[in-house]
Design a protein around this nucleic acid. Structure first.
Lengths: 345, 345
DNA sequence: CTGAAAGCGCTTACAG
DNA sequence: CTGAAAGCGCTTACAG
């Protein structure tokens, strides 16, 4: 079943059928009607491959998601898909694991699908610097800043990670906590090499919160690197508790890690928040169903999704890259308790 | 950059280049070497659209997932992708929400991508009966049985839902519970119309467990329909607790709903398992991190994934549809307590 | 407004 | 073993 069959059956030439199919002007109402009737009758669907080959650009978007189990991303993706649908556009989704190179995938997708644009859910700065020049379509990086990379076709929508972490840490400090363990991602270390990934940004936020209160943060001792997973959070919290007697709070850089930590704390016979307070990051749906409800920094998933799509649609029309910050919200759950100032702090 | 450029630069014809690219026999070692060198030099990548157009079949697989937030599926998918990769095959993933028609998507994917085969993660029987005849490639439905539908190109790998639910329910009954609320999915009702979806299968399992112990199950009163979500589980558990005073246990047909229920129970000032026992289904990673650890029926995600892929690869070579059942495991968590038999039960 | 024809980048019989 | 050529299903100048 091809466009030829439709042409034959309708009595028009393939060119005319193609014009009708693509809504091009310059076709008589009569021809349009007749052809659409035949299309309907044969339930004809044009061959996408042939169209892409010829047009050299498809009319769909790509979404590259880093982490199939990342619930923050799942929520954002859901919202993106409905918004793209409203705009009458299709999107192909590509799932990668946490460690894969999303930009390599993008290069590949560009070549194969020639999408109108690409949305990245999560991204590693180093990967972008290495290969993004090979990506030619407009792109939007969601949840991570891209303003310092200077690619003209790479916009971003993100949460202010530094400020978010600063507020989370500040909340703990203001509640009287002085021995706070930190569970971070891949590059959660204070190092001379700024890789500007979210873990590092968030650690800087923690540091800033301390400085603002005349305290210093010994990251070497209090921060620990972990995978963004339940098991990672569990393991990291266990280590923190072992290593630092008298720890009164843990700040995890994702809710998923916090949920892992929650169980680890419980398994040592300690309670949250009575013995150890706990703060997460992201504000995924699950965090509100924990017992105790997690105190966390809620990223505005729905707005991140909306702005991401809107910016991409707009960039498709050309123009300079845009970098937006979307406000977050500190959710006061049930996982932090106030403690009286200790003399030795 | 096309195959023509490679031909020109290497001094061979495009046909020869194509043969080398596809590993066809009948090319001299010399030609192969020279051409591969040029391919490398220009870092040439063939155009997929052109290949699909010509070959009329791509060499990749499709995976259609019902529910981007379904953590059971996320786990299975991860395993599938790595297994497909090991077999040297690529896969495109299509995410749908719980209510979308997966078979309609499959028909579309078949036409556009011409995949070698399709894996379905989750599926609704009615959708298959309505449209699956339009899907021509080999398919495997994972987590849901397809043996009674009789499509020659549709295999399945699943968990025995009836037996799984029977064991879960049996476990509660044997622990002395007699007032057990059930939280199920879309078609969790005893009705004359068997739609054979998983909720109905699992409800039948509950019923069987009762019958085997000389009890009857008043589903009308004790079972409640819910979405497969945290909020759905929360809502359903709340209703069950309101409606049935003296309820001693809740069986949720997914861990996600169970986690929602856990919070609902807590919000009424009740404890799990002291006041209300709770059993889930699926055995997702999260269930082991709950406090209390969830008692649940663990589906063997990794084996479902492996067998799904293996069967699909095998079906690609032709042959009759295969229907496999993968064993599950009852995980004894911390969410069920034994109660002494009550005289009035 | 419509048709005939070129061509997108590739694969694959068909000759040689 | 290699080349020349047809053709996959579509779009789009170019004529008329």
């Amino acid at each position: 079943m091809t466009i030829k069959d439709v042409a034959q059956r309708s009595g028009y030439a393939v060119g005319t059928v193609s014009r009708v199919l693509n809504g091009h002007p310059g076709v008589s109402g009569e021809a349009r009607e007749r052809i659409l009737a035949v299309v309907e009758e044969l339930s004809f669907r044009p061959n996408g491959a042939a169209r892409v080959l010829k047009q050299r650009e498809s009319s769909s978007f790509g979404v590259i998601v880093k982490g199939a189990r990342n619930l923050l991303f799942a929520g954002i993706l859901e919202e993106m898909q409905s918004r793209l649908k409203d705009a009458g556009r299709a999107a192909s989704v590509y799932y990668l694991d946490e460690d894969s190179d999303e930009v390599e995938t993008a290069v590949h997708v560009c070549r194969e699908q020639k999408p109108l644009g690409i949305l990245f859910l999560g991204g590693n700065r180093a990967n972008f610097l290495r290969r993004f020049r090979n990506v030619t379509c407009p792109c939007v990086l969601v949840t991570t800043r891209a303003d310092t990379m200077g690619f003209p076709n790479l916009s971003s929508v993100s949460t202010d990670d530094v400020e978010g972490a600063a507020q989370a840490m500040g909340y703990l400090l203001d509640a009287g906590h002085r021995r706070v363990g930190i569970i971070g991602g891949d590059s959660c270390v204070i190092s001379p090499i700024m890789d500007c990934n979210i873990s590092q940004m968030r650690l800087m936020g923690c540091q800033r919160a301390c400085l603002q209160r005349g305290l210093t943060l010994d990251a070497e001792r209090w921060a620990i690197v972990s995978r963004y997973s339940l098991a990672g959070g569990y393991e990291a919290a266990s280590q923190l508790l072992d290593r630092n007697r008298g720890i009164t709070a843990i700040l995890a850089m994702s809710d998923v890690m916090a949920i892992g930590a929650l169980r680890a704390i419980h398994d040592r016979g300690l309670r949250v928040p009575e013995d150890v307070s706990l703060v997460g990051f992201d504000g995924i749906e699950q965090s509100a169903y924990c017992v105790p409800r997690l105190t966390t920094i809620r990223q505005n998933a729905s707005r991140l999704a909306q702005r991401g799509v809107d910016i991409l649609l707009q960039q498709t029309g050309g123009g300079e890259a845009v970098h937006e910050i979307v406000p977050f919200e500190l959710i006061r759950g049930e996982s932090v308790r106030k403690i009286e100032e200790e003399p030795g702090a």
